[in-house]
Write a protein that binds this DNA or RNA. Structure first.
Lengths: 233, 233
DNA sequence: GAGTGGTCTAGACCACATA
DNA sequence: ATGTGGTCTAGACCACTCT
């Protein structure tokens, strides 16, 4: 799978300081010779990154960076639970949905490039501090890798389960954030007023073989200043 | 665009009596020689039809038909308004949303293979007979082809506008139906009880150059037996 | 092992955007 | 006119499924 490797490498470069948002990538022919691959293969890699909305192609003009992943790199990679423990704060993870399905929604399956047959865990958790809901997290995890996953694993720490129970090493993850107006369901789960914008993040984690481990969409109640914890640790 | 033509031709064959749902298509190499094209091109055509959920690929096994279009062929092609006029029934089209956007939802833009930049009309209409809502229709139409489109055009007849005002000849359309449980919004628009399943249809229309003209999602209040009108005309 | 789809190459020509 | 992405070819080898 050369195109996966190229996509991964290209993603790293896009996230590096070498490029800024709006910058143009080298054209497809140049990328071919840079990566020592045919143009068709490079195009497949580019399609992957378009799928993640990091770049966009404009016919006759070029390929441009429209977004970067945030918090890229393994140094910053800490789970919510790890951060919470560091901060000596009590918190609760509540699982409100736990299912295995092969009918995940089209947007998500597109991003993960899963075929229709592939089974995936879908878990929705709400995380509380002092009984205040501070985030809703939808996790998608490949069934094949985590067959023994239980609700109580998810009520403790997902990353602990992946790394210490399954022995899968998380190599890194990509994270992106957007400001959105939440739909009714999320709004009610986070006890928000109508029309209030919140921060939505997506996280995509991979292991040392660039294998997909976990995709999560996190709706943060930004009143809780989640990012402060990042700074404190 | 050879692959578009192959996709179109293949779609017709899938819809023909030659194949049944579940049947296997000829393998990619055979299709290449049948259509006199390279395998890569045939694969692109196949991808189009997978995108429309008509066929699915299974690695190492083959490519199989999972659905057929309904009402395929130009003979049956009549618009709601045409049918209504034939039946001498009074009816009202009410436009409740009319917008031009390039941010159409991912599922739809995937199906239409539009790039992010392409502007598209999005129009939601409710259609009434004797003040009873009988269907909600979401129409997506390429902006470039229908720049002069107005709300009142849509409150009359969409097909009249396309054919008689724009002079675009509709060559044919593909239609598929599903039974679904409507979401709250549709349920309220159609004045339905909670949990009641309805019929959802999608229609994709193209002109003589196989160019995309119109994509519509129709939620039918099936209590009104819309299909009876088909039979009456 | 036979049959199938998945990936990949090393070119080619076409269509669009911009100056 | 130049540079860019869009499409296409005619092969090749690999990976999976089934018998």
């Amino acid at each position: 799978m050369i195109y996966k490797k190229i996509a991964h490498q290209l993603r790293k470069e896009i996230n590096s300081s070498k490029y800024a948002i709006g910058d143009q990538l080298p054209n497809e022919k140049e990328l071919s010779s840079l990566f020592n691959a045919s143009r068709m293969t490079v195009r497949k890699a580019i399609n992957e990154l378009i799928n993640f909305q990091l770049i966009s192609r404009e016919w006759g003009r070029g390929t441009f960076i429209i977004a970067k992943d945030l918090n890229f790199g393994i140094n910053q990679l800490k789970s919510f639970s790890e951060i919470m423990n560091d901060a000596h704060k009590g918190y609760i993870n509540k699982v409100i949905e736990f299912s295995v399905t092969s009918n995940i929604n089209a947007v998500v399956s597109n991003k993960l490039k899963l075929s229709e047959k592939d089974k995936v865990f879908y878990i929705r958790r709400i995380r509380y501090i002092n009984n205040n809901p501070i985030m809703v997290e939808d996790s998608y995890m490949p069934y094949n890798l985590f067959k023994g996953l239980t609700v109580s694993d998810m009520e403790n720490s997902k990353f602990n389960y992946i790394e210490n129970i399954c022995g899968i090493k998380i190599e890194g993850s990509y994270e992106t954030s957007y400001a959105i107006i939440p739909d009714k369901e999320i709004r009610e789960l986070l006890c928000l007023n109508i029309g209030r914008p919140i921060l939505m993040s997506t996280t995509y984690s991979y292991d040392t073989n660039n294998q997909f481990i976990n995709y999560a969409i996190i709706y943060r109640n930004s009143q809780e200043h989640i990012y402060e914890f990042h700074l404190k640790r």
